[in-house]
Amino acid sequence: MAFPRYSPAAPLPFSRLWPFFLLGPVLTALTGRAEVGVALAGFRPEWPFLLTLYLSLRTEGYLAYIGAFYFGLFQGYLSPTPPGLYSLKLLVGVLIVRGVIRKLELGGAGSLFLLTLGVYGGLAGGLEPWLLGLVKPAPKAAPYLTAETLLLTARICLITALACPLVFGILDRLFKPKEAP
């Protein structure tokens, strides 16, 4: 299963992507509604990250950055996190991914898996708890990143990376324009 590289000559236009911007919040809401034992145990992909990654790889930079900010605003709607935290995390993600894809050959499911694993792992396991600790220090002067939260983050990271090639396949079918015969 080969995934086409981002082509600056043929990025997905906003006219095809606008339903994508409705899909993002709905998928985020769906995660919150998922069965407690499943979602809270980390057995779910992080949809805002996957959708942002898709935008980073398939469309122009400015749309990817707007998407990252927008999905980030909705991501924290269920938790008392500082507003802007997830937006900043996803914006950094776009920055990294758009920097990486100019240097690496990204063609197959394996490279998407590794890209997600690396970028998401760094953002969710490093940047996010660090920023959170800066803006909203954890109670009892304890760090946010404990063994429990690290395990949970690792599980979400692995499932997001595993789901990435599959989700990209579905999104490509839905949003990529049909090529002329």
């Binding site: 919150g32 509604r33 269920l78 996190t81």
Partner: peptide, 13 residues
Amino acid sequence: LAWDPGPWFQAVA
């Protein structure tokens, strides 16, 4: 309505 699925807080809507 929904559970916060993130790792940092225990919250619901």
